[in-house]
């Protein structure tokens, strides 16, 4: 089996970041996230051995704010001089299975079903993903219940923490080519992989989608939604939430159109120009979030939009817990 010594991770990252922007799980101040290796000054606190980082790498492929094209305006004039395509080569190093699955969700959303989103496509095409297998699920992890194998992330290469070394496993053709480039840092070694520790929460997701179909008007939504203040934190921190808004910035005759993250938890999200809103109440918006994650996405793409990373559970200021919600849905009577 090929392995890389843990001491060689920093040289590896240094080398890779000469050609690509390399995003690595690191701690920065009171935050942790996938930060660009070159942008980190001084001592770099790599968090490959932590369960995961606070901010998922969704920003890498789907920046929170992204300029799409420039605009020029004048009397009766409207032109688009430039379209911004970000063709930089990128590496996401050390992504966990839950966050990698979220990228698979993004691939389905942005690249299939009739249209290919060119901005996402360009970035995605030039990105290599190195997964980091999880053997020790955390307190809020439930990826396995959502159909994800924590030790086999959707990635080009997967590394497995085996003490002083990482086992190195090339998965895709891209992963094999990538492995060749760094061959000199790898070595052959016989070793056993660790055992996956048990999850603190496991449940059977089978049947939840079918159960939810027809529960749209169920009274349980009122009870579940009542503590929610529609703050949107859960959607911003969620690796798989992909909603965006399109807006513009213009000074005088020049400007640009950009997109930025948005959330179905916000009133403004569905507010119509004429003043109407199909989801006027807090509860309507709450229900949309959970139904999108747990039912609608499966109806469209065949698997749920929640990857079980548990972040929303850790960040919700009002203790709303998606595992509890799934369990409640499983146990209530479908008929109101």
């Amino acid at each position: 089996m090929q392995v890389i010594d843990k001491n060689k991770i920093v040289p590896l990252l240094d080398r890779l970041s000469k050609q690509s922007e390399v995003f690595v799980p690191t701690v920065k101040g009171s935050e942790s996230g996938f930060y660009s290796w070159n942008s980190l000054n001084g001592a770099k606190e790599i968090a490959l051995e932590a369960l995961n980082v606070y901010h998922s790498p969704k920003n890498v492929l789907f920046p929170q704010t992204e300029r799409m094209y420039s605009i020029e305006q004048g009397k009766q004039v409207f032109s688009i001089p430039d379209t911004f395509q970000d063709e930089k080569s990128r590496i996401i190093f050390g992504i966990r299975a839950c966050d990698a699955k979220a990228i698979t969700c993004f691939d389905d959303v942005f690249l299939t079903h009739g249209y290919e989103d060119s901005f996402y496509a360009t970035r995605r095409k030039n990105t290599i993903i190195i997964g980091n297998a999880c053997y020790q699920p955390g307190a809020n992890c439930f990826c396995s219940s959502m159909g994800i194998n924590p030790v086999q992330p959707d990635a080009d290469v997967v590394i497995h923490d085996a003490g002083t070394v990482y086992a190195w496993e090339a998965i895709t053709v891209t992963g094999q080519q990538f492995t060749e480039q760094v061959q000199d840092l790898l070595e052959e070694k016989d070793l056993g992989l660790p055992q996956l520790k048990p999850f603190s929460t496991e449940f059977d997701y089978d049947g939840v989608v079918e159960k939810l179909q027809g529960m749209f008007d169920h009274e349980i939504w009122h009870e579940l939604a009542e503590p929610c203040m529609n703050c949107g934190t859960c959607t911003y921190m969620c690796p798989s939430c992909h909603c965006f808004d399109i807006q513009v910035k213009i000074w005088g005759d020049k400007g640009y159109r950009f997109r930025c993250w948005d959330s179905c938890m916000y009133t403004e999200y569905t507010a119509e120009a004429g003043g109407g809103n199909p989801r006027p109440d807090s509860q309507d918006r709450f229900r949309n979030r959970f139904l999108h994650k747990l039912e609608f996405f499966t109806e469209r793409y065949d698997y749920p939009l929640c990857t079980g990373c548990g972040r929303c559970i850790s960040v919700c200021p009002n203790g709303i817990n998606i595992i509890d919600i799934i369990k409640r849905i499983k146990e209530v009577d479908k008929i109101v």
């Binding site: 701690v27 932590a50 995961n52 809020n140 559970i313 850790s314 200021p317």
Partner: peptide
């Protein structure tokens, strides 16, 4: 603050 403890318990890297 329950959120602070939740973050500590979550296993997500943070001081």
């Amino acid at each position: 603050d329950p959120l602070k403890i939740a973050k500590n318990q979550s296993g997500l890297a943070c001081p």
